[in-house]
Design a protein around this nucleic acid. Structure first.
Lengths: 355, 355
DNA sequence: CTGAAAGCGCTAACAG
DNA sequence: CTGTTAGCGCTTTCAG
C-alpha cells in the first residue's frame, strides 16, 4: 500500500508538505505542490480514509438506520439522502440489520432515524450513552423522546385533510378509514381522521374505521404487527409489516361489515393496493363501487389499474432535509428543532365523482 | 469521549491489559479482568471503531455497490447479504450513489458488485489501481474482466430452460421472448432462448422476439436504456431501468405485430407485470389469451392478478453466498472462482394449460 | 514556506 | 501475567 510517507520520499519533501499539498491547506511552494501531486498520481496514491477519519474525528459517513427495506417509501427516502449527502461530500450508509447494539461499531458521524418509534427505542436503549447526533424523520405521531432530537416532519394532519377534502370535493360524504392497527392505537392518521369527521359521525365514528387486529392476521410469519404485548398496548409497532396483505384483509372486513361508506382513505399506498386487489376479487369495482385514496404517492401505484389517487409525501425531500439538518448540526450551525416537508395530492383514477 | 486509557487509569492497570481484557486475547488475571470490565461498563466505555480499524487494517464493513435501489431484486439480494454478514460479525454497507471514484473513500474491506456490467466498468476504471477484494454477482452474461474476480452465478441458461419446459409441459409450442433490449444485444436470456427454440423456429426466431429499441422509448427521463452509443453497440446497459414501462411497451408491440405465440417468457417479473397491465388494457386476458412467465420470483408478483408464474432466482441466497465468498477470501481461504446459486420454478396462475 | 514532533485510539510484540 | 514500546496513516501545531 502506498502512503503519504512514500510520496514524500519520492518527491524529496516531508510528509507534512505532502499533506498540505493534498488538502490545499497551509503554505506550499507552487512548484513543489505540482511535483508532489504528480508523484502521488504516478504512484497511484490515495489517502487512507480510516486514518484520515481517526485524525479528523470525522468519518464523512452518515447512517440511515432503517430495516424496513422492502418498503419503497424508505427506499425513496434513502435516495433523497444519498443525493443530499453527495452534494456535501458525505457518504450515506444504509444499515439493514435492526440491531441497536451494532450501531456503535459503525464508523459514522451521525444517524438518521426513519420514524418516531425507532427513534424512541434507540434513545431508550443504546442512545442513552452514545451521543452521536441524531435526526428523526417524523409524522406527528405521539412519542416522548428522552433527549431533544431534531425532526423533519411530514404533517400528517394536513395529509389527512387533503385526502378528505379531495373526497368531499368529489361529492363523498360517508368516508371510511382503513388502518393496519386497532382503533385504540394512537396513530396520527386516525386522530386526524376522527377530528375531521367528528361533526359528521359523532360517536358512530368507529363504524367507519377498519382496523386490523393481531388476532385477525393469517398465520404468515411475515405478518407480525406487534412483537410484544407491551408494545401492542402502548400502540407501538415494529417495521417490516406486510401492509399489502393487511390491506387485502381490510377490504375483506369492509365487505363483510357492509360499511356504507362511498370512499375509503387507506393507511398508505401499499395498503390501498392490497385493498384494491381484494375488492377486485370480491367483485367490488374501484372506483365504480367504492372510491379509494392512498397515502405516499409511491411508484407501486403503477402496478394496478385504475391508478391510485394518493397524497404524495415526497420521501426523497424529507430524506434530503434530514441529511442537510444533520450536516448543519455537525458543522455547529444552529438547527430548527422541527422542520417540515412538503406534501401534495397526486390525482389518479381511483376516486369517482358522485352526482 | 471515554478511551481505553481512561479505563486503564480507573482500574489501576495499563492500557494493554485493558485491551487484552476486552478482546479476550492474551493473558489477564481473572480477578483483574472482571474489575476492568466493570469499570468499562460503569464509564460507558465502548471501543472506537475507527481506531480499531486503523490498527487491525480491518473495517469489518463490506460494500454492496449498487445504485439500482428501486429494483427489488437487488434489495432482496442485499437482505441476504446483511444476514450473512451479521452471522460473521460484519456489517453490510449499501452505497446508492453510482460513483466509482468515491469508492476509495469508503471504509471497507471488500466490494460486492451487482452484475457483470458494473464489475467490468469498475475493473476498467478505479479498480485498475485499487485492489480491494471484489466479488461479482453474475448471470452468465458475456463480459471480459481485466482481473480474476470470483463470481456467484445464477445459471440463466437453466433458468430459461425451466421457463420453456414449464410452458411446453402446459402444451405451448409457439413461445415468444420479450426483452428490454434489441435482438442484437448479447444477453444470456436471448442466447439461451434462441438455442432452445432453434429447432422449432429455425431462422424465423426473430419473429418471436419482442425487443425494445431505444428509439421506441417514450420521452421519459427515467427510461434510459443506454447511456452512450458505444455502450449500446457493445450490448451494455446501465441500471435504473424502467422495466415495468418497457414491459408495457412490449405488450403493445406484441399485439401490434400480431405474433401468433401462445405464451411469452418475459425478461423479468417487473417487465412481465408491465406486460400484464398493458395486455389487460388492450383487452387481452392473461392467461386466457396469452400465457406469461416471468423471471425473478419477486414479491411484486402479488400486486397483479392473476399471480405471475415465475422462475425464482432467490437473490437473498445469491447475496449471502457473495458475502461468504468475500469473507472467505479475506480470511485467506481458497475460494472457488465460480459458484452457483439455486433456482426454482414458482407456480402462479399466469400459464394456461392448453388442450 | 518547511519539517520535526506529538498525537487520534487502539493493538501487538517483547522484555520483564 | 503485566507494562513498555512502537507503530497503523494521517493532520496539525510550532519552531526553524
Amino acid at each position: 500500500m502506498v502512503t503519504r510517507k512514500e510520496v514524500a520520499e519520492k518527491a524529496g519533501v516531508s510528509v507534512s508538505v505532502v499533506s498540505r499539498a493534498m488538502n490545499n491547506s497551509g503554505y506550499v511552494e507552487a512548484e513543489k505542490k505540482k511535483r508532489i501531486l504528480e508523484v502521488a498520481d504516478k504512484l497511484g496514491y490515495y489517502p487512507h480514509p480510516v486514518a484520515e477519519a481517526l485524525q479528523k474525528r470525522r468519518t464523512k459517513q452518515l447512517l440511515f438506520f432503517c430495516k424496513d427495506l422492502r418498503n419503497s417509501f424508505y427506499i425513496d427516502m434513502y435516495q433523497g439522502m444519498v443525493e443530499a449527502a453527495r452534494k456535501r461530500d458525505y457518504m450515506m450508509v444504509f444499515n439493514g440489520s435492526m440491531d441497536f447494539e451494532k450501531i456503535r461499531d459503525a464508523m459514522i458521524d451521525g444517524i438518521i432515524m426513519p420514524n418516531e418509534v425507532v427513534t424512541q427505542h434507540y434513545l431508550d436503549t443504546v442512545g442513552r450513552n452514545y451521543r452521536l447526533p441524531v435526526i428523526a424523520a417524523s409524522y406527528g405521531n405521539p412519542a416522548r423522546f428522552s433527549r431533544a432530537v431534531p425532526r423533519v416532519e411530514i404533517d400528517m394532519e394536513k395529509v389527512m385533510e387533503l385526502a378528505v377534502r379531495e373526497l368531499r370535493a368529489n361529492g363523498h360524504k360517508r368516508l371510511a378509514l382503513a388502518m393496519p392497527y386497532p382503533f385504540r392505537t394512537m396513530d396520527v392518521r386516525r386522530l386526524a381522521f376522527c377530528s375531521l369527521m367528528e361533526e359528521v359521525y359523532g360517536n358512530r365514528i368507529k363504524d367507519y374505521y377498519i382496523g386490523i387486529h393481531r388476532e385477525e392476521l393469517p398465520e404468515d410469519p411475515r405478518i407480525l404487527a406487534f412483537q410484544e404485548d407491551e408494545d401492542r398496548e402502548s400502540g407501538m409497532y415494529l417495521p417490516e409489516e406486510d401492509f399489502f396483505g393487511k390491506g387485502e384483509l381490510a377490504a375483506q372486513l369492509f365487505a363483510e361489515r357492509k360499511i356504507d361508506a362511498t370512499a375509503v382513505v387507506a393507511f398508505n399506498d401499499e395498503f390501498a393496493l392490497g385493498m384494491c386487489k381484494r375488492f377486485h376479487a370480491l367483485g367490488i369495482q374501484v372506483p365504480r363501487d367504492i372510491s379509494l385514496i392512498g397515502i405516499d404517492g409511491s411508484s407501486a401505484r403503477k402496478y394496478r389499474d385504475p391508478c391510485l389517487t394518493s397524497v404524495g409525501l415526497f420521501p426523497e425531500k424529507q430524506g434530503a432535509r434530514c441529511v442537510d439538518t444533520l450536516l448543519d448540526m455537525l458543522e455547529g450551525k444552529k438547527v430548527k428543532y422541527v422542520s417540515g416537508s412538503p406534501i401534495k395530492l397526486i390525482k389518479g383514477d381511483s376516486v369517482r365523482k358522485l352526482e
